[in-house]
Amino acid sequence: MRPRLLEWLRQGASGRSAVSALPLLWLVLFFLAPFLIVLKISFSEARLAMPPYAALVEWTHERVLAIQLHLANYHFLFTDPLYGNSFLYSLRVAALSTLACLLLGYPMALAIARASPARRNLLLMLVILPFWTSFLLRVYAWIGLLKDDGVINNLLLALHLIDAPIAMVNTSFAVYIGIVYSYLPFMVLPLYSNLEKHDASLLEAAADLGAPPWKAFLRVTWPLSIPGVVAGAMLVFIPAVGEFVIPSLMGSANQLMIGRVLSDEFFENRDWPVASAVAIVVLIVLLGPIVIFQRYRSRELAGAA
């Protein structure tokens, strides 16, 4: 950095610290502190009171500071099969949806990246546009299509392809459709921004050397696009694991995803400690993917500088 600029920054040191301190304080108060509270409550005992949990740290009557870590909530999560099942179900739904997003999103991103520059912006806008319209209403639109008396069943019945409506809504199938539909743009956009940077002459060289297009793709395009694939996959997988709205509106009542279990524990059973323990376990499970995504993002930012 140029000396003048450094001087400017140094002069404004007091204003500077306010600029960095204000958002930092905000995030510590509204993001870090809440997590510590969740962690704390996950170790406490449920009580019939408001708030419905016991304090961890208490002054007992002998003026002794008593700290009780209550591990029963976690033990409960690992012994009651409801939690294990919904965890595995959530992970499976998230993983398969991510794969489906990749299978559909990769060719889309590639097609956009190889379109003429004039067309690219239009196509890209068409991918982003649904993202700006209400997520809830887009999920709702699918219910109208998939219902027993919905558009798809009516169409198939009218064409005499089926005799009775196919049950599609309130099944896992609907959950997959809903998640792939809602998160597809999150897969396409990072893939596009990766694929768009590829040097076309590499593919020309491969073709000149006699490689058929599929081979050029496997040996050149795919390896170069791995960072984009990872970023897109994490952007779909992480929120999909905790997805709440789509399974609530489209999923079956017998197979609950973990987000729904957390919400039910909290609102229906009013068991805040167990809900908090579920949140902590989800967080621990997602820590790996989150770290991978963060590493990718900081590399991208460094590369752009």
Binding site: S20, L24, V28, P34, V38, I238, A279, L286, Q294, R297
Partner: peptide
């Protein structure tokens, strides 16, 4: 001072499932 913390905290909301953010804010 606090740069690493600020960097981590600004990316956290981007990658956390909403349900966890919602629960923790309510408890706060």
């Amino acid at each position: 001072r606090g740069r690493a913390l600020l960097a981590a905290l600004t990316t956290a909301p981007l990658v956390l499932p909403e349900i966890i953010t919602g629960l923790s804010l309510l408890l706060l």
